[in-house]
Amino acid sequence: MGSLDPQVIEDLGKGVIQLLSDGTVLRSNNIDFDYPLDKNDGSVLIKDCQYDEKHQLHLRMYKTPSIITSSRKLPIVVFIHGGGFCVGSRAWPSSHNCCMRLATGLNALVVALDYRLAPEHRLPAAMEDAFSAMKWLQDQALSEKVVDDEWFHDVEFDRVFVLGDSSGGNIAHHLAVRLGGGGGFEELAPVRVRGYVLLAPFFGGVARTKSEAGPSEEHLTLAILDR
């Protein structure tokens, strides 16, 4: 009977994500990060929201109390995490710590989104989710409650910047292509994207890039990335 049990056929990151022979995907909730979450001493306010009810997707907003009491209108930074399209979360230390620093360093409202992960959700699911998050942002801008909302009453919805890390940079690129040169204003008004920042964006194609030529990363090997 044991020989008929599903077997591990792919293992990414020493158990971080495993693909079984029956198609089941297992993700570990016990990941040993080399660095901790930055402690919040109250200098940053944090709020989690659901932006896609159908797919149960959430985002996390960051804002400093001093910004909330300011009369100056603030830009919005949309942060898209990396992870090879297969792992990662807005709550991972690498994402959370970065967004904490962006909120305090840029004096901006930072919006970090989760998206559906492969291989359960094949691309372009992640790109569709990024657009869905932008539509959610538009809903907030058009809401009658926005003038009384402490998170949105003092932001400039037409001054949005999208920052993507690694595979998040790839998603940001595809979002830019979809929204076009006008920053999506025609379909997202009053929201408009003014710029994109791609941090070590993750791209691949038929021809090998220099980074693909080697040396290979420990976990995201070329063989895994090709799949």
Rank of each mutant, 00 (worst) to 15 (best):
A108D: 10
G88I: 08
D158Y: 06
T69L: 06
I46W: 05
D48P: 03
K63C: 02
I76K: 05
A126I: 09
V87G: 01
N107H: 15
G83I: 10
P75S: 12
V110A: 00
P65E: 04
G83F: 10
I68W: 03
G105V: 13
S95L: 08
F85Y: 15
S94D: 14
M134W: 05
L117V: 09
W92D: 04
F79D: 01
M100L: 13
S143H: 05
E128M: 10
S166N: 07
K63L: 09
F79Q: 09
P65F: 12
E156W: 13
L123A: 07
S94E: 11
D154I: 08
M134T: 08
L74S: 14
S143A: 14
S66C: 02
R122I: 14
K135P: 00
I68H: 03
V147F: 10
E156C: 15
R60I: 10
W151T: 07
I80Y: 04
I68C: 05
G83S: 05
G82Q: 05
F131K: 10
R101W: 04
L102P: 08
S166I: 07
H55D: 06
V111S: 01
L59Y: 14
L117T: 03
V78T: 11
Q50K: 12
R159P: 01
T69D: 04
S143P: 06
A91N: 12
K63W: 06
V155R: 01
F79R: 02
L163R: 04
Q138V: 03
T64P: 03
Y115Q: 01
K145I: 06
A126E: 12
M61K: 09
N107Y: 12
F79S: 07
G88Y: 05
M127W: 14
K145P: 02
V147P: 00
A108M: 08
N107R: 10
A126M: 09
A133H: 06
K63A: 01
Q140M: 12
C86I: 14
N97P: 04
A126N: 13
L106N: 13
L102S: 11
I76F: 08
V146D: 00
D148M: 05
V155A: 04
D114Y: 06
Q138E: 04
F157V: 13
A118T: 13
C49V: 14
Y62W: 11
R122Q: 12
Y115C: 01
G168S: 06
